[in-house]
Structures are given as structure tokens and as C-alpha cells.
Design a binder for these strands. Structure first.
Lengths: 227, 227, 227, 227
DNA sequence: ACCTAAACGAGACGGTACGTCGAGTCTTCAA
DNA sequence: TTGAAGACTCGACGTACCGTCTCGTTTAGGT
């Protein structure tokens, strides 16, 4: 979802449940000068750049505006605060996550973990992710936005992988949807939390070997064929 | 380790590898007026209080000083920055972690998870932990301090639990120490990361039931007797 | 010269020799939001008020800002330091000095002395003048500013009075302009220095009788008709 | 008067009218360790040195203490504040003023003016004098101290010069003591004020030529023999 | 040769102001 | 109406000095 989608209102998204990824139409064709779409992209790029360079604490709206060649006003016209801006800037990285069906549950999981670890190695992600989570723990609105734009896309992968495994017959199909959701929750928290903790807290690298061991742990009940 | 231990230097801890938790002796009885130990305690208490009330972002050195009935200068004389102060304030909570031998690996793990989840439910911890980790990802000195004071005490529990299990015969004794350390690392990152992610990112509660399911996942290779 | 004259640069006045008292035109109509003229006035008024109340030592930038209903930043945007601000605040009082031609040299001098003494009786002047001079003795930039805004306006009176006396035939017209300037210098230092010293150092009042005696001293060479 | 005179009480001088220049006696021979006289001198020297180097505004008690190789406590045990300390430090310079009888009123005046101008050329005096006067305008106690230690010694010269002139027959002896005192006041304010103003405000040098012209102005009523 | 009380150095302490910085808003002109 | 520019309010920052305090350590009397 591109941020440019938000055209008419000042700070939209309030009800925005799914947030349609396409501008679909000039909707409420504004009367005056239209917003520059280029500016949006420049701002998000500048944000990521500044984030990588200066970290969350060193990031300032003024600096982002300057890098993007844009006035602070323009920035605030589109995002209500630093945090929300960064959410969008980081979210675009997580949009790229995909779950290719690689033929086995283990392979799928390893691919997802590797991809996630790769994202967390980017300086901009490293600088921003935990800070955003921290901010979110006090601001429910921000929390929702983070969940929509960053957490959910990751969780979907787990659901998808599970569905694939079931389609392949590696797992029994779900009976109780609620129980299934809960199980997905556990798996998801475990994958995301563990990788984050290893990289950002313990500060140790995520190697192929580590991924294999960790996946083995995850597959406990469904070890599948040794590889 | 109490912060009061730091006696002589300005912002000590320089080599401080293990940092003995006891003053043991007047060591290098400084020449001037000695630092007030009461102030240290008041400051740490005030920090936790303010943290719970205002969150990490709302925490100000000035406010902490005022709550502690202390001048800002006194605060800066002991801690070089907000982050370091909060590390010490939070660390004291993690000092209390213990690992009672409850007779089985499962019980020990569940107890540790529950205790850790309990800590993460405190408003002060919630407000601070992720923010600290985020700050730490840019500042190596802070990172080290966090590891010493907060992460390590948790990790020790895992090692202890493992040793207990081995003593009870539930696990094979270690052969390769390096491999053992790595395995402890995985387990530790998984426990800590997952609980943090569930509570602070997903924002869902850690119930007894969830703990049981999660422990089952962890015990994959060593399920032990069903209970 | 009103401080509002300073429009474009940050801390202007760089070459500013005469500094025209009128904005004359939008000159270099700046691009952003223009500086508030009302703020300038409010700040100068607040400065004089605080000066009278608290004295030079008790004057704080923060306090002035608060009295003026203005942020500290705004204050520093216009004046680089307390001293410069006070120069401008006090200067406006000296702008009011005039030299009406009263018909005789003696009368003119007595009027000037009286007017000057009157200014030095105001609490704000008393608090500020010597302090400014003291500061100026270390800071050449400030010194120049003081001379332009406070000393020069006074000196002009002496020159004017002299010209009037010459026009009336009480004094010979100048032959050597350099010698004349020097003589004006002596007279000026004597008037200003003596009145200041009596009021601010000796702490004794300047009465009509004192003025008469002092003027007699000054008129030594040109006593004119006894009155 | 040496500051060492003040031995017994904490911050003496309260009634001290004339302040006897000699320690006269161990007065209230204290029981403990006596104050170090060397420290007094070191402090005053350090004060003058720092004053010359840093100016009034840059002078800090801590710095003076360090230069004097003395603890801040020692400093405050003797002088209640920065201002009082500086008064004493500067006063010792003015103690050296003398009025040698040079044989004529004009010569005496010129000598006094020259000597005074010389004092005002020292960087320490320049830095301190006006600042002290400024401080004094708010603090009556300080004002009194300044008058006793700095102003009075200068005034005495004028009185002495007048007495000498009368002894030589250049002036009529006083009839009305009150009128005489007033006249001394005018002359004194004129000399001190003018020289200060020229050097510290106008910032122009006091040359032999200037002194001659100024003296001529002063001698208006008693020009004496041309020289 | 003690004994004792003050002076001394060091430096921590509670305050207060400093001057700067960033967030987010508002006001102007030009496009 | 958007956008660039930049002034605005607010509030925290970390530092510097102030003048006071509390330590342990001299150091000169008086005994």
C-alpha cells in the first residue's frame, strides 16, 4: 500500500480497515493544486535513509524534510507524527515479504525465517523496529497502525505456510478455527520474537545453521522427513 | 548489583567485567563528601515510578530528579544518560528472578516463563524494555550494559534449568560445551523473544494455557512425561 | 532605531552604520512568515519592566520571555544575548533626548544635564547602564552597539548645543574640525561621566543647585552673562 | 587594609566603620588552627589575575579557588560573595594612590588624573570597576563597602590636594565646611566620572595633552599661572 | 608530647539559569 | 489548494556556577 493513496482528507485512515492499495480514482477530485506523488516517495526514501544513518533517536522531521527537498508542512500534511511516518517507511519493506511454496513445511519455514532475518539486518529496520514497538506500547492508534502495516503482513505468511502444508498433506486440516488461530499466534510470536531477540537483543547473527536448528525446534510435533 | 557500588570514578564501570555486587570495603575511600546512598535508591525508585506513569517517552530527567527530591546534577553525576539510568532501574527488577528446582523440566520452564511474563506485565517494564533495546542497537556501551544487567540474569536461568534437568537425568549431560552454549542461546532467545513479542507487540496476554502450549513447543525433543 | 527594522538576516546589524529608523519598504520581502513586530515591542517593554523590578543581575531571558508572552526561542532569534537585548531596550529611552534651543548656552547645558539626570533616575536605566558599560569593556561588538545606540545620541546633543551657541555668537565658530571634535569629546565625557558618577557611584542626587554649580564649572572659559 | 585583618568572626566587617588597617592584636585569640595569611594573599592575587584574563563575567569562584590552590570553602569562609571578594582585590590597587605635593594645584591635579587613568588601564580594573558599581546599585551593603574601600581613598586625594592648595595660598581657606564638602564632591565626581567615561565608555586614551585640557576645564575659576 | 578545636582540601549536594534543539503549528507569498 | 519558507510556542536537554554541606586530614595553640 502506497501512502499516496491517502488523498483527500487531512489525516485519513481513521476508520480505514483494510486500506485499499490502489488510488482507485481521484475520488474527491480536489479543487486546488493536487498533491505531489513524487513528494511522498521522496519523503519515505529520505526517512529510510535518515533512519539508517542516524537511527531512531537521531531522526528529525526537519532533517527528513530537507533530505526530501520538501517543507516540513508538506510532511505534516501527510503524516500526523514522526512515528506514523516511520511506520509507513518501514512497512514498505515488509510489503515485499512473500511465501513461495517450496515443497515442504521445513523449507517454507526456513525461507521465511531467513527472509525475516534479512530484513532485520537492514540498518533502517534495526534502528526503527523496536523503537516503533516501544512507542506503540503507549499509543493505541499507533499500535493499530503498526499491527496493520507491519505485524499483519508477517503473520499472513505463517497462515499461508500452514495452508500450504495442509494442502500438501503435511498437516491435518484445521477443525476448530479458533484453536487454529491461536496456534498460528504461538508460532508467529515465536518466529518473529525469537529472530528479533537474537538479532537485536542478543546481537548474534542468524546463520543458516542457526535457522536449521531453530526450525527443528519449531517443527517439534511435525518433524517431517529429515533433510 | 546495586548502583551504589560505583564509588570512585565519575562514570565508572570502565573495565568492570563482573562488577562485584558488594562494596566489600571502603576500597578507595574518596576524599570529598561521599555520595549519598539514599539518593541512589530514591532516584531508582522515582525512575520506576515515573516510567510506570509516563512511559519511556514521557520520562524526563528533570521529572525524575524532582520526584526523587534530588537535583538534576546529582542524577547526571551518577548516570550519563536517561538510558543508563533506566537500565539500572529496570535491572533491579530482573535481579529478583530465580529458578527454583520444581522437580521437572516442564515445571521449571513453565515457572520461568510465567515469572518472566509477570515482569513484563509491570507498567514500568513494559514502558522501558523495548525502548532500551532500541536505544541499545545504536550505542554499544549501552548495549553491553543492558546485556550485563538485564539479559544475562535471564539467560542464567536457562542454564540453571538445564543443569537441573541434567542432574535429574532428564537430559543427557553436555559433551561439547560450545554446542551446549549455542543450544542455550537458542532456547533463551526463543523464550525471551516469544514472550516479549506476544505481550508487547501482539499485545495478547500470557495465560497458563498459553504457557503450557508454548512449553510443549519448546520441549519438542524432550517432551518428558505428559502431565 | 527600532529593532523591528532588522528584517532579513539572523542577527543582522553587520555593516549597519546609520541604520535607518524606518522600514522604508518591504525591501527584501522574506519568504517565510514575517517576524512579529508586536513581539519586538512586547519584549522590549518586558525587558524594561523586568530591569526596573529585578535589576541587571536578576534579569533572566526566560523571565523576559514569559513577561512578553513569547517563547525563549523567539527572543534568541532576535537578540544574541542578554546584553544586546538590554542595549536596545535602554536605547529607546535615550532616543527621546532632545536639545531645544533655549536661547543661551548655559540654559541649554542645564537642560541637557537635567534631562540626562532624569533618565539616570529611572530604575531600569540605573540597573542597566553601568552593567552594559561593564560588559562592553570585554566585548567589542557589544561596545560598538552601545556606542551607536546609547552614547552617540547623547553626544549629538553636545554637538548640537555647540552649534547653537555658535549660531547665537556665544562661541567662535570652529576653525580646526579635529580640535573641535576633541573639545566636544572632553565636554561630553565630562557631562556624561560626572552625572553618572554622582548618581550611580556617589549615590547623591542631582538637584537644580548642583546642576547650576556644575554648569558653571563647565562654562569656565565662556561664563557668559551671569544669571 | 589587608583582608587578613578579619580574623575571628565568620563574615566580619558588619559594623566596621573605619576598618583599622592593622590586625592590632590577636583580638579574640581563637582556639583552633589560625587562618592562613598566605591563602588570603594567594586568593586576592588569583582574583586579580583571573579578572584580567576572563573579565568580571568570566570570573568564577571555583576558578579563583583553583588558581589560588585553595578550596572553595576557604574562599567563602573569608568573603561572603564574589562581589565582596573583588572589591577587596581591586581595593588594594587603589590603596596605592597618593597625592604628592608637587608645588602647584595644576600639577597636583594632573598627577592625580594621570595616576587614576593609569589604574583604569589595568585590565583587572577595567573588567571589575564598572561591574562593581553596577552590582552596588542594588546591594546597599556592597555599595557601602565599595565606597569605603574604593571611592573614599580617591576622594581623599581631592581633599588633600585642596588642603595643599590652600596651604600654598592658591585657594581661599574654607569658610563653610558644608559648602566645601559639596564643592569637593563636584570636583571629585567630575574627575572620577570623566576619566572613567573616557576610558571605559568612550574608549579613548587619556594622553598627557588630554589631561592638560581637562585640567584647564577644572581650573576654570582658579586658572593659576599658565604653564 | 598530647589534646583539641578550628581551618583546610576535596568534592557531593540542591538550586537556578543558561543557550540549544526538536516537535508540531501557524502565517506569509508564489505557483 | 498545495507547497516552500520560516517564525512561532512549548518543553526538555545537558552544562555551568552558585553557595552550602559533609567528609577526613592538617596544624597550631594550650596544657
Amino acid at each position: 500500500m502506497a501512502p499516496t493513496t491517502r488523498q483527500p482528507a487531512e489525516h485519513p485512515d481513521p476508520p480505514s480497515a483494510g486500506a485499499p492499495p490502489v488510488p482507485l480514482a481521484p475520488l474527491v477530485r480536489g479543487k486546488g493544486r493536487p498533491r505531489s506523488a513524487a513528494a511522498d516517495q521522496a519523503i519515505l526514501d529520505a526517512t529510510r535513509e535518515a533512519l539508517a544513518e542516524l537511527g531512531w533517536g537521531g531522526l528529525t522531521m526537519g532533517d527528513v524534510a530537507q533530505r526530501a527537498g520538501v517543507a516540513k508542512t508538506t510532511l505534516y500534511r501527510r503524516w500526523p507524527s514522526k512515528s506514523e511516518l516511520v511506520v509507513d517507511a518501514i512497512a514498505s519493506l515488509f510489503d515485499q515479504l512473500e511465501c513461495a511454496d517450496l515443497g515442504s513445511l521445513r523449507a517454507d519455514i526456513e525461507a521465511v525465517v531467513a527472509r525475516f532475518a534479512e530484513l532485520l539486518t537492514l540498518p533502517e529496520t534495526q534502528a526503527a523496529l523496536l523503537a516503533l514497538f516501544a512507542e506503540g506500547s503507549r499509543d493505541p492508534q499507533l499500535r493499530r497502525r503498526i499491527r496493520e502495516r507491519i505485524v499483519q503482513p508477517q503473520k499472513v505468511l505463517v497462515e499461508l505456510g500452514r495452508a500450504n502444508a495442509q494442502a500438501r498433506g503435511e498437516m491435518d486440516p484445521d477443525r476448530d478455527p479458533a484453536a487454529a488461530a491461536e496456534e498460528v499466534g504461538i508460532i508467529f510470536d515465536t518466529i518473529a520474537g525469537t529472530v528479533e531477540h537474537r538479532l537485536l537483543v542478543s546481537g548474534e547473527p542468524v546463520t543458516a545453521d542457526w535457522i536449521r536448528r531453530f526450525t527443528t525446534l519449531l517443527l517439534g510435533p511435525f518433524p517431517g522427513p529429515e533433510r
